[in-house]
């Protein structure tokens, strides 16, 4: 068991170091976020847009920027042909959780940035800030749990970039619907207690998908 945690941390560190060296994901994704939020701003123009619609737009930006970043996690191992070395050195479940952890940290940073930019550029108003932060945090776990296994699947297929949103969207709909609803509620100032019902769905979704992914990952990873 301790071995499992150790490999998780090792894979996480490895990804972190390689990311800090190349800064592929962060640089490209920050630009992507900036561009997409500006497009929203230009599309809105001088109109006064309701908060409810902005909550939905926020998650559209999060979904697509996540699909840009998360889909790369396993593809880059295949492209640089480092996957064989990774397979030889560590156990498959450790690889999965390590990548999961890395993706989680990546999307968390990204979502923080998206939210801050979103508030600055559009007139997005959050009334229950702590509730909102919890929603984004828990929503992130669900988003990452489903995205990581899909990223692993597409890394073995052709036309990787287009395939990712196609595969991940149907699986993510229950999560997206719930999380958008919770974001709307928290932005409108609902008490955190009211959000518990959404949290239960989001957390159970994350647990179910992560467990099944962990069980299935070895079939995807090992040739």
């Amino acid at each position: 068991m301790s071995d499992f945690f150790r490999t998780t941390i090792i894979v996480f560190k490895k990804d972190l170091i390689s990311e800090l060296r190349t800064r592929y994901a962060l640089n490209a994704l920050i630009m992507f976020v900036l561009v997409s939020i500006s497009i929203i701003r230009f599309a809105i123009g001088e109109e006064k847009v309701e908060n409810e619609i902005l909550s939905g737009l926020l998650w559209i930006v999060i979904f697509f920027s996540a699909s840009g970043g998360l889909s790369r996690t396993f593809v880059k191992e295949e492209e640089k042909e480092t996957s064989v070395a990774l397979k030889m050195s560590v156990d498959s479940s450790g690889v999965f959780t390590g990548k999961l952890l890395f993706n989680f940290v990546l999307t968390l940073i990204l979502n923080f940035l998206i939210t801050v930019l979103f508030i600055m550029i559009t007139d997005y108003e959050i009334k229950n800030l702590w509730g909102f932060i919890l929603v984004i945090g828990i929503g992130n776990i669900g988003l990452v749990s489903a995205s990581t296994i899909i990223a692993a699947i597409i890394s073995k297929a052709n036309s990787k970039g287009t395939l990712y949103p196609v595969l991940s969207f149907p699986v993510l709909i229950p999560l997206l619907v719930t999380v958008i609803n919770a974001t709307k509620l928290s932005a409108a100032g609902a008490e955190t207690v009211i959000l518990y019902e959404e949290f239960v769905i989001l957390i159970s979704y994350s647990i179910v998908v992560t467990t099944v992914s962990l069980m299935l990952f070895k079939y995807v990873w090992e040739d």
Binding site: I150, V171, Y219, V220
Partner: peptide, 16 residues
């Protein structure tokens, strides 16, 4: 292999 994995992942999210 991969389509089997995907169909299982999709099926577990359906009950939600």
């Amino acid at each position: 292999k991969l389509s089997s994995v995907y169909s299982i992942i999709a099926a577990v999210t359906v009950p939600f």
